[in-house]
Design a protein around this nucleic acid. Sequence first.
DNA 1: GCATGTGAAAATCTTCACAGCA
DNA 2: TGCTGTGAAGATTTTCACATGC
Lengths: 207, 207
Amino acid sequence: MRYHKIPDETIRRLPIYLRGLQFLLAQPRERISSRELAEFIGTNPWQIRKDFSYFGDFGTPGVGYGIEKLITHIKRILKLDVIHKTALIGAGNLGTAVMAYQGFKVYGFDIVAAFDSSTKKIGKKINNIVIEDISNLSSLKRRKINLAVLAIPRESAQETADKLVKAGIKGILNFSPCYITVPKKIKIITIDIAMDLARMPYYMTTS
Amino acid sequence: MRYHKIPDETIRRLPIYLRGLQFLLAQPRERISSRELAEFIGTNPWQIRKDFSYFGDFGTPGVGYGIEKLITHIKRILKLDVIHKTALIGAGNLGTAVMAYQGFKVYGFDIVAAFDSSTKKIGKKINNIVIEDISNLSSLKRRKINLAVLAIPRESAQETADKLVKAGIKGILNFSPCYITVPKKIKIITIDIAMDLARMPYYMTTS
DNA sequence: GCATGTGAAAATCTTCACAGCA
DNA sequence: TGCTGTGAAGATTTTCACATGC
């Protein structure tokens, strides 16, 4: 099955496997079976084996998977084996939380620039990064930053996204609660916390 | 098709429709067609009509959908037509951002309590809510709070989730980057920002 | 024996095409 | 004519069962 198209759902799950595996690194063990990994991250063994099978032989029949080997493979598939310079757009509450979050580094993301439109914030530091004027976005291309985390109010989200695209950005993680149009070549993922909260009551048992 | 099981994917999209519709309320128009709504939120007309068809006749053939009527219906389906008292667990950077985020109110979520383990924070106010000692979680049942936003470090996430379940919580929005086990009756949705960022490079064109 | 890898079956979800109504 | 509602077709994803290798 090695030469098939990779399902999007598989790609969505790979970071979850990676997260679990990296946590397992702390334990004094080298191997893990699909059954054990499944239990650890909350899925089933078939799913894991099927997902891995798209990429080749990761494991050893009768034995299991080598944890470090698996991490290396998944990182390479996801192109996380290189450092990705990332820019933060918007240094408000959410932007500050993103800056403080240590979880990005593990995956090779390095937030090397921060922008805001408020004159009160420009020039100040956030996590040791000087906040720049948002009108200087065009410098991103020269600085070879092609990933952006967009954490600004909805009103200016589309407009700013357009500027990011012009500045050569290839991927946008959008925290603004709206749909943003970008050229097909640009990958955009929108996270709206309220959207996830909004479907909780539907599933909550009233009893 | 009115008496079929509702697909999970449909439920996942309803909040997105709702978000778009509520934004359209500001415009001086009463009706919208599936084609227009689809364009506005970035999907296609068939998907919208199919999703709505699971719940009954929302629209008028030849005319379109009434925006306000649609909002009312979707809110009722998602059980967002009542106020949901919500507790914030963890008043760190992310918790502060959650508190400041105004987007919850629109969907009927009211954050009425905040907890933290740090003695430095307990007693202080965050967005006009006094931060309580996290060891007082058991009071949630009495206060009829059955929804929690969990924004604490991974190390104590499972342990705290267990306490929340004991305190009668029915739904948990988990921001800790790990899998958490809860009884089947409890709905848990995990948001790991890094997980979404981690699959961007795979999709980004290098050219 | 034990755990992986994978075709095939089953389930789920999306897209289509068009009947039916305003 | 224009747009909704929906059975059916098509695509995708998950689950299963078991052949294969250690």
